[in-house]
Design a protein around this nucleic acid. Structure first.
Length: 609
DNA sequence: GAGTTTGAAACT
DNA sequence: CAGTTTCAAACTC
């Protein structure tokens, strides 16, 4: 960071300093300081201003302590000796924790930069605290609490996914609460955490465990190991992914669980930046690290809250996607079952009979799923493939809205419905029929088969789909479904995720938003002269912003019936189109900018005097 | 809500 | 691979 040398102030005349501090200019500058304003800045309100509305009850929840106690890092200064102590502690100071600790962290951040650089701030502790705080903000949301406690879990045996025991309610279990986000995940594979709910963002195909795996070996010298809490929100939205590599990670995860320690994932792409080179690592600005981690944590909160809202039917338009199965004879263990097909457990509102698609039958579910996948490796893959250049063709009526290049993977086989009813999977998914369809008398309002042959559904797409069908879907490598796990994605040399361009099906609007946001923030960065954020690091942020995590929010689900994420559910597109994510980043950057100006003016006055 | 229709999934 | 059966959602009344 281009912080002016501070030795000037160390040698200054105390009298001069006093004069300076009493001067109006100094007062003005001091008012620009990030220190005091930040101290008075209520973080909760900041989130509120970002349209990240959490019920106020979050601050009064006694569960606050539970999560605080789940901190993994060595910074246990705040961890009480017992759960009871935790509760006692936090019941007496619920909301202040969020504000004070956050602001304290920011103060540390700023102070750490203003002071001698030898005083390396404890960024780990800071981030750990922040992550706890932020996660608490949503995880102990009153809704979330209900959600998490809806299905009691065994807090001892599992570190991921679904708990086996569902009999005894777990109230104060840190693990249970923390795992609540994944409660409804079909934990077919320990590290292939399914979408937490059918109501969850159906297909955020982000497999952070994959990153963890790839980065574990490289992380030994990580200067800024990440608090394990950041794992939570991410996995809350991870899609079920099965591949051979999962077994390895599964074992690792189980080992971790068996040790009773939830391994810090150290996996976030954000903190993996520039870790391949020790030199580069030394160049990483602590503020940059803080910023990146904060962004990731913030994102986690978005997803966690999103899960909660959808689960409790507050999704507005998204409610239509929260369906319940009604299986009678399949035991919800076949693809007939929408829940099973979507990779989620059945829940209370389901009307199924003899349902085995529940956490207590986890082993059966996993075995069945693998059996189905042995027959058809793409059985749980998304049925609809959207090209990255999909552009909604908006017509006069609602039914004329169709992703120009989105098509059903296998095509339909309608005989009587003319592809005009929901019997047709293409129509149900809101996509037009394609060359792959064997339908008769196709009149699909989203695009008829005969018309699609010359439409924007490119020849490559056709080739992919045709080849896919020709192989009877026994080669999962192609076509690349939307929900391809990051585990299969190429990881760059510096352990950073490659951009979403490697994926099919990123939403065009989301992409546009990301790019717009990127330009905006890159511009801001350049103008604020954040010297330590090198161009490469800026590119890292750029990649982060364009990561699949961002772009796949609008992806399709394994069950094409739950395809789209409603506009208002996307954490990046709320608040009238300006993302909270963006605003949060801008907020952090503005703090940094203010600090730079403060440093500049202070040094200038010091030099003058 | 019951019965029918439909097409995907599963089976042979 | 094709034909048949099973199944559950969609649909109709």
């Amino acid at each position: 960071m281009d912080t002016p040398p501070k030795n000037v102030s160390q040698t200054e005349n105390p009298v001069s300093k006093l004069k300076l501090e009493n001067s109006p200019v100094f007062n003005y500058i001091n008012s620009l300081s990030p220190i005091k304003p930040v101290r008075s800045l209520p973080i909760a309100q900041t989130f509120g201003s970002l349209s990240y509305s959490s019920p106020p009850s979050v601050f009064t929840s006694p569960h606050v302590s539970s999560h605080k106690g789940s901190r993994f890092k060595s910074d246990h200064n705040h961890v009480p000796a017992s759960v009871g102590d935790e509760e006692a502690l936090h019941e007496t100071e619920p909301p202040q924790i969020l504000q004070n600790e956050c602001t304290t962290d920011l103060l540390k951040m700023c102070d750490g930069n203003v002071k001698q650089k030898s005083e390396t701030p404890d960024w780990d502790a800071m981030i750990s605290d922040s992550s706890d705080i932020l996660i608490f903000d949503s995880m102990y949301d009153s809704e979330a609490s209900r959600c998490f406690l809806e299905r009691p879990s065994d807090s001892k045996t599992r570190s991921l996914g679904v708990a086996k025991s569902t009999l005894e309610p777990v109230i104060n279990s840190n693990d249970a609460l923390r795992r609540g986000v994944r409660r409804r995940c079909l934990d077919f594979d320990q590290t292939s955490v399914a979408s937490s709910s059918r109501c969850v963002v159906p297909s955020i195909g982000l497999h952070f465990n994959a990153i963890a795996l790839s980065s574990k070996d490289n992380n030994s010298g990580n200067e800024y190991p990440l608090s394990g809490n950041t794992e939570l929100g991410l996995q809350g939205s991870i899609t079920p992914v099965l591949n051979s590599q999962d077994n390895v990670r599964e074992n690792e995860t189980r080992e971790d669980a068996g040790q009773g320690v939830e391994e810090c994932p150290k996996s976030l792409a954000l903190v993996e930046l520039n870790q391949s080179s020790p030199k580069k690592k030394r160049q990483v600005s602590p503020l940059h690290i803080f910023l990146c981690k904060s962004l990731s944590i913030f994102h986690n909160q978005m997803l966690a809250l999103q899960f909660t809202r959808r689960k409790f039917g507050q999704a507005g338009e998204g409610e239509s996607s929260c369906k319940r199965c009604n299986c009678k004879r399949s035991k919800c263990l076949k693809l007939y079952c929408e829940c099973f097909a979507a990779g989620v457990y059945c829940i209370g509102p389901c009307s199924c009979v003899d349902c085995f698609n529940k956490p207590i039958h986890e082993d059966i579910v996993m075995a069945t799923r693998k059996q189905i996948e042995s027959r058809n490796p793409l059985a749980f893959a998304p049925k609809v493939i959207r090209n990255s250049d999909s552009i909604m063709e908006v017509g006069d009526d609602a039914t004329s809205k169709t992703p120009a290049s989105a098509r059903h993977k296998r095509g339909c086989n309608c005989k009587k419905s003319n592809c005009l009813k929901k019997y047709c999977e293409c129509y149900q998914s809101g996509v037009g029929c394609s060359i792959n369809c064997r339908c008769e008398g196709c009149k699909n309002a989203f695009g008829r088969k005969d018309v699609s042959a010359g439409s924007s559904f490119t020849s490559m797409d056709k080739e992919n789909e045709t080849s896919s069908r020709g192989r009877t879907e026994k080669q999962p490598s192609t076509p690349m479904p939307l929900r391809q796990p990051l585990a299969q994605l190429p990881i760059s040399s510096n352990n950073m995720l490659l951009t979403h361009h490697h994926l099919h099906g990123a939403s065009g609007s989301s992409l546009h938003m990301s790019q717009s946001f990127r330009r905006q923030d890159m511009s801001l960065m350049s103008h604020s002269k954040i010297g330590t954020i090198t161009e490469e690091r800026a590119e890292n942020i750029e990649n982060l912003i364009e990561s699949p995590m961002t772009n796949m929010i609008n992806a399709v689900s394994p069950n094409s019936k739950r395809v789209s994420l409603p506009m208002e559910l996307s954490p990046w597109r709320r608040n009238g189109g300006r993302s909270c994510y963006c605003q949060f980043l801008l907020f952090l950057l503005s703090l940094h900018t203010i600090k730079i100006f403060f440093d500049f003016f202070l040094s200038a006055f010091n030099s003058l005097i």
